[in-house]
Structures are given as structure tokens and as C-alpha cells.
Amino acid sequence: MNPNNPKVFKDAKDALYDFQSGKTLMSGGFGLCGIAENCIDAISEMNVNNLTVISNNIGNSGRGLVKILVQDKIKKAYCSYVGGNPDLEVRMLNKKIEVELVPQGTFSERIRAAGMGIRAFYTPTGFGTLIAEGKEVKNFDRPCIMETALSADFAIIKAQKGDKFGNLWFKETARNFSPLMAMAAKITIVEVEELVEIGDIDPHEIHLPGIFVQRIFQGKNYKNEIEFLLLEKE
């Protein structure tokens, strides 16, 4: 921690100093796009287990959170899609990990709800399917199921640019779940490609106000991997 600015940390290990076994962790990114690479690497080197992880894909194509998954550090996962993640699918079918599959819109809204102080909401998504089992049904214009807010102890997210108050700017589709997770976690750790001074980001351009960010650090060695490279035919 920096005494002049308690939000600014040296690196991922420094920012994760109190991360422990049994914690609930949100991890931003869609596939490998916009994942907190430095924090994931740091957690893969920490002696922690029994984690509950909330992330859309739990890594993909053998990369990202798969590093932690294959170390069997994850006890329970919340995600919407496991296609393209054979390491997760095989652990699911062998019951080595408990997975709650959540429809992606419900997933993002449950996280947003936690950050916004909403305890639950009703949605038609999933009505009449396996995911409705055990959930309250209420009829509005059509039948809906009740879904509850989803919060976490920690969130690890990545932004393109951030200032030392934690105001963030995301690039293209790297934003995805990250602002929502930042709002829903008690401690949000942000790694950025560019850490700038307070005032360097125009207030109009801020995608997530720094009030939702507890820790921030300048990240390094980004791979920014592409899963499926498709180019215009020449």
C-alpha cells in the first residue's frame, strides 16, 4: 500500500495480500477478452483453495482462469457457458467441481443487482427450464422466476486505463462484466495497462467511477490473447 494514496498498489501480489482460501472471487472478462491476467497469475502462485469463482467462462481454450481451475483451487463456479472449456466440462461431469450455470443475462443482472443494492428481481428468462427448479414463480404479463443478487468478497478486473482514484476506461468489448463486478464485490482490485494521474481522464469518458474501486495497480506483460482470429478475405 502507498501511504500517500491507499488505493494504489505495486503489483498483483501486493494488491492480493489478504486474499485467502474459501473466498468468493469475481473475475471479469468474456472468454479471454478483458481478463485480469496479472491477478490470475498471482492467484495461481498463491497457496489458496476452496474458492468460489464467479466468471462468465472460468477461462477458455486452456487459458485465463483455467490456470487456477486445473490446480483444483475452485470448489464452486458460477458461469453461463462452458463450451470451449474442456477442462471445466470434464470436471463438471466428474463432479470435481460444483457448477451453477446461470443464463448470461441473469448472470450479469444478478451481479449488477448486488452492486445496486437490489436483493432480487423477477425475469422470464429460464421459466419452465431446469434452472427454474426450486425458484419462486410469479405471474406478471407472463410467468417469471425470482433471481437473487450475486456478490463477492473480491473482484479482479482489468481496464485499459485508470487513474489513481480508480476511475476506469475500458477498450472496445473488453468492458463486458467488469464494471458490474467492480460494483458487486467488497474489495475490487483493478489492473490497468495505463495508470494515469487523477484528472487525466476526462469526466465524460469515465466508464466506471472510482468509488467502486478499492485497489488499483499498473499491470505488466499483457498477452491480450485472441481466441479465434478471423480476418477479412483479401
Partner: peptide, 18 residues
């Protein structure tokens, strides 16, 4: 699809394709 020059790892669709 993007060109070789304009391709960006942070610009993908839901199939994780550029």
C-alpha cells in the same frame, strides 16, 4: 471481419472471434 492492420484482441463477438 477486421483487416490485419485493424484487428484488435479486445474487439470480439460472442463466439470470441475477431
Amino acid at each position: 471481419r477486421p483487416t490485419k492492420q485493424s484487428v484488435s484482441p479486445t474487439l470480439i463477438n460472442a463466439g470470441k472471434e475477431t
